[in-house]
């Protein structure tokens, strides 16, 4: 294992100070991505500042038409939360399909969103529901948060404290998982919201994006058949040993139709 200086944060402010005070500090949430990354020396920070255990970053509350989830809340907690299942069942379904049970017991929503792996599930929900990412410094609109592959609008050392998800009229998330890792080869989050239909695609591109042509078609007619004839360009989509860009483009249409159907 790569050698680093481990520091446990006592609070969000303490974590920010510890990262700022380190030569090259990094934050650790559940560690489900960071620890394997450190083993492979794909990240070589001087200091790892652990915020995973901070109590004020845990928990779920529903009020004022939104579900607020503390950034260090685990996927397992979200998947099994009666509040989440009641308000946004699609979000519980999404969380229940991340990785495997052991990963869900440690991995966190904030860690996933901050890392912005192109194949992660949560970016689909943040974009698809038009969520707000709340940090120790400001609020960032979901639409402005994901800026590129593993890139976000977060400043160096900025800490996500919670994410607020507006409760939609209907929503569903459907993914075509890699059968080994359960990462999304393509995942599509569809939501009917107060501001119209939102369709967010994860896994297919360098970062999650909205399928605006599909949104327009579904605003006119919210049914799977409304997506007939809409093809997504494979330009710029991911290609790897699991799926070509053309295959991913095709899957976007298939997953979107299934998600619309699952909205009922």
């Amino acid at each position: 294992m790569y050698e680093f200086n481990y520091q446990k944060a006592g609070s969000v402010a303490d974590a920010a100070a510890k990262v700022a005070g380190a030569d090259d500090g990094t934050l650790m949430a559940g560690g489900m991505t960071l620890i394997p990354t450190l083993k492979q020396r794909l990240a070589m920070p001087s200091d790892v500042v652990d915020i995973g255990q901070l109590a004020d970053l845990q928990g779920i509350s529903v009020a004022g038409g939104k579900v607020s989830i503390g950034s260090m809340t685990t996927h397992d907690t979200v998947a099994n939360s009666a509040d989440v299942k009641g308000a946004i069942p699609a979000l519980a379904v999404l969380a229940s399909g991340i990785g495997d049970p052991m990963v869900r017991n440690r991995g966190t929503m904030g860690g996933s969103v901050a890392n912005n792996d192109p194949a992660a599930d949560y970016p689909g929900a943040v974009l698809g529901l038009g969520a707000t990412v709340v940090t120790d410094k400001r609020e960032i609109a979901g639409d402005a948060f994901f800026t590129g592959m593993f890139e976000t609008a977060l400043d160096e050392g900025e800490i996500i404290t919670r994410i607020d998800f507006p409760v939609p009229t209907k929503a569903a998330y459907t993914k075509f998982p890699n059968p080994a890792s359960r990462y999304a080869i393509v995942g599509v989050f569809v939501a009917q919201t107060a501001d119209g239909v939102r369709v967010a695609v994860t896994g297919a591109g360098g970062t999650a994006f909205r399928a605006t042509e599909m949104e327009a078609a579904l605003n006119a007619n919210f049914s799977p058949s409304a997506l007939d004839g809409i093809s997504v360009s494979s330009d710029g989509l991911n290609k790897d040993i699991h799926a070509s860009a053309e295959y991913r483009a095709h899957l976007i249409g298939v997953m979107a139709k299934r998600a619309v159907a699952a909205c009922g």
Binding site: Y6, K8, G31, M32, I35, P36, D50, G52, Q53, D76, P101, M102, V103, N105, R106
Partner: peptide, 15 residues
């Protein structure tokens, strides 16, 4: 009480 992968945790995280 919950299952976790002990190769992907630091010993200090189990304090």
């Amino acid at each position: 009480g919950e299952a976790v992968k002990s190769c992907t945790m630091l010993a200090v995280q189990a304090e």
